[in-house]
Nucleic acid binder design. Structure first.
Length: 449
RNA sequence: GACCCCAUCGUCUAGUGGUUAGGACACCGCCCUUUCACGGCAGUAACCGGGGUUCGAGUCCCCGUGGGGUCGCCA
C-alpha cells in the first residue's frame, strides 16, 4: 500500500539560495534518506525572463556545499546538460511537451477553457480540505476574490504555463509521494489538490513547515545577509553545522540531543516531530554548533576545510611546507572559530619574521620597558630548550618566572606579542614550537629593539 | 480587509490533563588557566490575555491580542 518515498526540492532560480529554501531541501532530503526514498531536484525555471544559468549554479553549488545530494535531477546548471533519473527533463523550461499534453487532457475533460487568450482551469466552488502531515486538516474556503471568479489561469496568454500547473504536473509525472514545503504554500495547496483531482489521481501527501524569521521576528528577505546560504559559506561555517542548526529550526529529536551528525539526523528525522510555529534565526546558536562540530573534526578534515580559506585570504599556502601549514592550523582547531576568522589567528605563521605587525594596543601593553629584561632573559632560557617543544618551553618559562619572582603572565604576554603581534591567539607554547627556535629567537630579539 | 497558520525562559525547544515546567544557546557568578577560549560548578529567566470544560489545565474548546502567510496571465 505504501509506495516508496519520493520527495523533491523545486527551487526557482532567483540568483540566490534562501536559507529557508535550504531548510526545505534539508527536510525533504532527510525524509527521503530516513525512509530510504528518492530525493529529486527539479528546477522551476518557467519564468524565463529572470532565470539564468548562473542563478541555477548558485542553487546547485549551495546544495552541494551542504552535502544534500539528489538521486534524480540535473548534474549541471545547463538545462540541456546531463541529468540523472528517468522522469526528466528536470528543468521545467524543457518540459513543454508534457505540459501541453496535460493541458489538452484537461481540455478534453472540459476542465480547461480559453479566455482572453489564456487558458483557465474550471476550479471547484467548494471549500477544500487540505490534509496536512504537519499542521493537521486545514479547511480552505474560497476567498472573496475566488467567490466572484473561482477559475484561474493554467496557461498564460504569452504561451507559458503557470507555476500551479507545472508544479502539479511535475509532481504527478515524477511520482512525488510527499510534498514538504514552506507554509507560504498552504493557500496554493487548494489549487493543487483540485488539479490532482481533475487529473483523476491521488494527490501526494502534504506537509507545510513553518517559516524562518529574522532574529527580530521580521520576515527574512533576500536583503538580509543571513537569508543567503552563500554568505554562510563565505563566513566559514562548517556545512554540517549549518545543517545541524537548520534541522533544529522547527524540528527536534525525541531524546533532546542537539549536537547531531548528518548520520544521526538521518536516523532520527521524521515529520511527526516537526512543529507548527515559526522560528527565529539565532546566529549565536549556529556559531556554538559550528564550534562543537569544528573541534571534533578529524585533523585531516579540519585541514581540508580550513586551507581553502587561507588561500582565499591571500596566503600563499604552497610556499610553506605541508607539515608546517598543518601544524600551524592545528593549533587553532580547538578555538572553533569561523574559517573566515582564521586568518587573524594564524597570520603570524605566514609572514617573514621581520614583518610581524604589532597591534598598537598589544605593543603598548606588553612590550614595555619593564618587559624588556624579562624578554631578554627568556631568550636565553629558550636557547637552552632542546628539543624545542611545547612542554619544554612551558617548563623553561615557568622556571624562569619562579627564578625572577614574577608571574608567568609577565613573561607570556611580551613573548606572545613579540612572536605574533597580538595579545590573543593559539596556545603560546604550541605556537612557539611550530615557529621553531630560530624564528622565535629572531622575533623576540626584534621586539627588543 | 478577507481567508489560513501560529503563540512555553531573550532565542531554539521538551511537554500531549496531575511536572519542583526539563534541555540547549545567550547572559551572570565562582573555579581552573600563559592570552582568547575550553572545561567544571552554580544562578537569573517562560506557559500572551480573558472566558469556559474538568476534581484538576502549559496541555482541550471559544473569544481577544500579537506575529506570520496568502489573496497575480510571479514562483
Amino acid at each position: 500500500m505504501s509506495s516508496p518515498v519520493r520527495v523533491r526540492f523545486a527551487p526557482s532560480p532567483t540568483g540566490y539560495l534562501h536559507i529557508g529554501g535550504a531548510r526545505t531541501a534539508l527536510f525533504n532530503w532527510l525524509y527521503a534518506r530516513h525512509h530510504g526514498g528518492q530525493f529529486i531536484l527539479r528546477v522551476e525555471d518557467t519564468d524565463t525572463a529572470r532565470n539564468t544559468q548562473a542563478a541555477v549554479d548558485v542553487i546547485v553549488e549551495g546544495l552541494r556545499w551542504l552535502g544534500l545530494d539528489w538521486d534524480a535531477g540535473p548534474q549541471s546548471s545547463d538545462p540541456d546538460g546531463p541529468s540523472r533519473g528517468d522522469r526528466g527533463p528536470y528543468f521545467q523550461s524543457r518540459r513543454g511537451q508534457i505540459y501541453r499534453r496535460r493541458l489538452q487532457e484537461l481540455r478534453d475533460r472540459g476542465l480547461a477553457y480559453d479566455r482572453d487568450g489564456a487558458v483557465y482551469f474550471r476550479m471547484t466552488r467548494d471549500p477544500i480540505t487540505i490534509p496536512d502531515l504537519i499542521v493537521g486538516d486545514i479547511i480552505r474556503p474560497l476567498t472573496d476574490r475566488e467567490q466572484a471568479d473561482p477559475d484561474w489561469v493554467l496557461w498564460r496568454s504569452d504561451g507559458q504555463p503557470v507555476f500551479h500547473f507545472v508544479n502539479v504536473v511535475d509532481d504527478l509525472e515524477m511520482g512525488v509521494t510527499h510534498v514538504i514545503r514552506g507554509e507560504d504554500h498552504i493557500s496554493n495547496t487548494a489549487k493543487h489538490l483540485a488539479l490532482f483531482r481533475a487529473f483523476g489521481v491521488e494527490p501526494p501527501k502534504y506537509g507545510h513547515m513553518p517559516l524562518i524569521l529574522n532574529e527580530d521576528g521580521t520576515k527574512m528577505s533576500k536583503r538580509d545577509r543571513g537569508a543567503v546560504v552563500t554568505n554562510y559559506q563565505e563566513d566559514g561555517f562548517l556545512p554540517e553545522a549549518v545543517l545541524n542548526y537548520l534541522s533544529l529550526l522547527g524540528w527536534s529529536p525525541a531524546d533532546g540531543q542537539e549536537f547531531l551528525s548528518v548520520a544521526e539526523l538521518i536516523a532520527r528525522f521524521d515529520l511527526d516531530r516537526v512543529n507548527r510555529s515559526a522560528a527565529r534565526f539565532d546566529v549565536k546558536k549556529l556559531e556554538a554548533l559550528h564550534f562543537e562540530h569544528t573541534r571534533r573534526l578529524a585533523p585531516e578534515a579540519f585541514l581540508a576545510a580550513a586551507v581553502p580559506y587561507l588561500w582565499k585570504a591571500g596566503v600563499p599556502v604552497d610556499t610553506f611546507p605541508t607539515g608546517y601549514v598543518r601544524a600551524a592550523l592545528l593549533t587553532v582547531q580547538e578555538k572553533g572559530k569561523l574559517f573566515r576568522e582564521l586568518l587573524s589567528w594564524t597570520d603570524f605563521y605566514f609572514v617573514a619574521d621581520d614583518t610581524v605587525v604589532y597591534e598598537p594596543e598589544a605593543q603598548a601593553k606588553a612590550l614595555t620597558p619593564t618587559a624588556k629584561p624579562l624578554l631578554e632573559a627568556l631568550v636565553v632560557a629558550f636557547g637552552a630548550v632542546t628539543p624545542f617543544s611545547a612542554a619544554g618551553l612551558e617548563a623553561a618559562l615557568k622556571q624562569l618566572a619562579t627564578q625572577l619572582g614574577v608571574k608567568a603572565g609577565a613573561l607570556v604576554q611580551p613573548c606572545r606579542v613579540a612572536c605574533t603581534g597580538r595579545l590573543v591567539g593559539p596556545s603560546l607554547y604550541h605556537l612557539l614550537e611550530v615557529l621553531g627556535s630560530d624564528r622565535v629567537r629572531v622575533r623576540m630579539q626584534r621586539a627588543l629593539k
